[in-house]
């Protein structure tokens, strides 16, 4: 489908399919067209060309039936300031003719004690949790979450992921957008990467990881800086498979092929220092993301 706002092309020939029962991560920088796509799914806006189908129904014609079976967490949540958290959930329950218990849902998202507070006094994170609670009403077959971890602290983001996993296990299909890779990497079955309104990659997490060379960023913490640090650095740099070395005080960050990791550690220890700690930060997806979305994209040989 294609969507234009006046002269501005928001989505160009976007073609993607989310399969029943999967968790689909929709990745892209801000402004790539993720929310536009979600707005089209929900019939908040209409495509300029092409069409959208949800549960086999046209998103425009069947919008009501689609929304009956879908839980939605829209971008940049705004709630009703003068209504309480419980009133919001009760409204969602009534709207969906569901028989959920509002308090149960509120405690599931961790804001049971704020149930009787007006949403106008909620923090961003609480508003996000409340909206998630309303999205869970009626055990939806599909969850559409636009940047669900916005406003949440790491703990909240983890709880959010846990709920997404539970819902997926129950049988719900999950479609969520994010510009935070860790979120997507942790729970998605498949990922689509959107840039400037175009889908530039779509694959499983494993498939995408295969698409970039096996690079690991190895962070090594030493007890002290080696006496002959220049020699140590160049020794590490000369190891086969190491592409980049950076020193940040007593920490060394080495971009290295997986099979050369142990050689790196052994080489460092030859310089009379002790490796206190090391971690591999396997952010290959992040590298991939940068590779795909950066303006000057370098194609690996």
């Amino acid at each position: 489908m294609t969507k234009r706002f006046g002269d501005e092309l928001a989505l160009e020939g976007l073609d993607l399919t989310v399969r029943e029962g999967e968790v689909y991560g929709f990745l892209g920088p801000n402004g790539a067209g993720k929310s536009t796509t979600i707005n089209l799914l929900l019939d908040f806006i209409r495509p300029t060309a092409g069409g959208v189908t949800v549960f086999g129904r046209d998103a425009q014609e069947g919008s009501l039936e689609i929304r009956e079976r879908t839980g939605i967490l829209p971008e940049g949540i705004e709630l009703y300031d003068r209504l309480t958290g419980r009133q919001h959930v009760e409204f969602a329950i009534e709207s969906k003719a569901a028989d959920d218990d509002a308090d149960e849902l509120l405690s599931r998202v961790g804001i049971a004690d704020a149930a009787d507070k007006k949403a106008g006094g909620y923090s961003k994170g609480m508003a996000q949790r409340l909206t998630l609670a309303t999205a869970l009403v009626g055990e939806p077959d599909l969850l559409i979450l636009d940047e669900p971890s916005t406003g949440l602290d790491p703990n909240g983001a983890r709880e959010m992921r846990e709920i997404i996993r539970e819902e997926n296990r129950r049988g719900a299909t999950v479609f969520f957008s994010s510009h935070v890779l860790g979120q997507v990497e942790a729970i998605c079955d498949r990922v689509g990467i959107l840039r400037d309104g175009e889908l530039i990659a779509e694959d499983t997490i494993a498939g995408l990881e295969d698409a970039v060379p096996d690079r690991t960023r190895l962070r090594v913490r030493l007890d002290r800086i080696p006496e002959d640090s220049a020699a140590a650095l160049s020794a590490v740099e000369s190891i086969d498979g190491v592409s980049e070395v950076e020193a940040e005080g007593t920490t060394l960050v080495v971009s290295v092929a997986d099979e050369a990791k142990t050689t790196v550690l052994r080489t460092i220890e030859e310089y009379d220092v002790t490796v206190e700690d090391f971690e591999t930060d396997e952010s290959s997806l992040e590298d991939l993301f940068v590779a795909y979305t950066a303006e000057e994209r370098e194609v690996a040989p």
């Binding site: 929900l42 009501l64 971008e75 409204f91 709207s95 999205a135």
Partner: peptide, 14 residues
């Protein structure tokens, strides 16, 4: 203007 309409229309209301 505020965006709460997306909450309202995210629920099954025509």
């Amino acid at each position: 203007e505020s965006g709460s309409l997306k909450f309202l229309l995210g629920l099954p209301h025509s």
